Simulated scan of single mutants.
Amino acid sequence: MKSKYKYILTAASLALLLAGCSDSNNEVSKDLEPTAETKIIVDELNREVEIPAKLDRVVMGSILPYFSTWFIATNSTEEIVGIHPNSFNAASHSILKDISPAILDAKTNFIENGEVNIEELLSLDPQVYFEIASQENTVKKLEETGIATVALDTNTDSLNPLDTLNRWLTLTGEITGVTDRPAEIIAEGEANQQLINDTLAEADIKEEDKPRVMVLQYHSDGEISVAGTNMHGNRWLNATGGIDVAADDIDGIKAVNMEQIYEWNPDIIYITNFTETQPEDLYNNVFESQDWSEVKAVQDKKVYKMPLGIYRWYPPSGDAPLMLKWMAQHNYPELFSYDMDEEIKDYYSRFYHYELTDEQVEEIQNPPSEAAKY
């Protein structure tokens, strides 16, 4: 939900704001003027935020994928002095650690038991803190300390899986002043989506011939949680011609039992990087209380772990244009005959100026279970 309040993230400005408010329902805004040292941006809570014009110390909280967006927009992680422990774990198992090793210098100790430790955060001397828009209490707490905080929203009404990334890229360009790289990534994603649309249209795929797909979001011996509508998996499937078997039953993420899985009986299962489960775990039926051998996707060996490049490919990340091609090929291997290894190498060469080895490409497409831990 978009906030109707506009805050200026300095202690003095906060005092003025509170002095001018008689109740919480009054709409407050203030026209800000940038200086030679600052600029004004509008974040995704529709708040005006005053930030330094030149940034070299930024911290990223519960907006887990954003560090990868920052990298692709700027070609640098040297400015990132702090990231969430979950983000750090993903980064430490990613190719980004090889491309931009500075990401491993980022601190994580400002997050304790899922909460921001203000004292530890201040010790990092952040110029700007990036937070997920749904954590409005955290945003408010940070405002009260005078830390400039930019809220980024993961929610979207669009079925376009690139919508969130494109918004973040555009805003990051405004924040950093680097706009050419974001524009190139956005254009690449749009071109890949057009290729998929044209190919599927030319093939004239009938609804009954589309693959029925399930996205396994979280999984363990005691949990089977599936993603449905209003989740990234549903958007990826919509963009690549798959039918989401959970769409009619689940809004968001929901725990289900094996009986529900049998009823859906998906042709394909995609496993996110937010769970340690691997395709072989389902193939080998290693979970004592779950029998996956009756599921078509398992029988046909069509269970796929989503890749992890500079970040996990399931949520918004710099590799999102590649995710479109990867999933489209798994959904329709007979229609999309490109070499995915070469696609990944070419993308990294053009946009990250990094030449991947065959081993690194293999690692991207087959991430370890440890990458889901934090």
Rank of each mutant, 00 (worst) to 15 (best):
E37I: 02
I196L: 06
E37D: 12
P101T: 12
D157V: 09
F351E: 03
L308Q: 08
E50W: 02
T176M: 08
T170A: 11
T240P: 02
S62N: 07
A297W: 00
H232R: 05
A91E: 02
V128M: 03
I196K: 01
D105W: 02
L195R: 14
T74N: 15
N366V: 15
Q360Y: 10
S158N: 11
Q290T: 11
T240H: 01
Y314R: 04
L162D: 06
E119Q: 11
A372P: 01
A201K: 15
K2S: 09
I95Q: 01
L322Q: 08
K54F: 07
R167W: 10
K296C: 00
A36P: 01
E184K: 13
A15L: 14
A15K: 14
T145L: 08
V81A: 01
L335W: 11
N238S: 14
P34V: 10
R235C: 05
L104C: 10
S24F: 10
Y354S: 11
S349Q: 11
D251V: 15
S94E: 03
A148T: 06
N265P: 05
L32A: 10
N46Y: 07
A53L: 15
S317L: 05
Y348E: 02
L200A: 09
L159S: 11
T357H: 05
I8R: 03
E119Y: 04
V215M: 13
V28N: 07
D153C: 07
A203I: 10
P52S: 09
E334V: 13
K210H: 04
A371R: 01
E143M: 15
D251I: 14
N285S: 13
S62E: 04
D244S: 13
Q193C: 04
T145C: 06
H93D: 06
Q329N: 13
D23T: 12
T154W: 06
N257A: 13
Y304T: 10
T145E: 12
T38E: 01
P321Q: 01
I40K: 08
A246M: 08
R167C: 07
A53Q: 14
N26A: 12
G309M: 06
Y347C: 03
K325C: 02
D31K: 12
S337W: 02
E362M: 14
N137L: 14
K302H: 10
V42D: 04
D125W: 02
N285R: 11
L308K: 04
A183F: 01
L64T: 12
T35F: 06
K302Y: 03
D358Q: 13
W168K: 04
S158P: 11
V150H: 00
L9H: 11
G252V: 07
Q290L: 15
F130N: 03
Y352D: 06
E363Q: 15
D157H: 09
L282F: 11
W292A: 03
G61C: 06
F110V: 08
E355A: 15
V226A: 00
V59S: 06
P279L: 03
I118G: 00
W313E: 05
P182E: 07
V298W: 01
L282K: 07
L169R: 00
I310N: 00
A106M: 09
L96K: 08
Y374V: 12
P34H: 05
D251F: 08
D291K: 05
V116G: 03
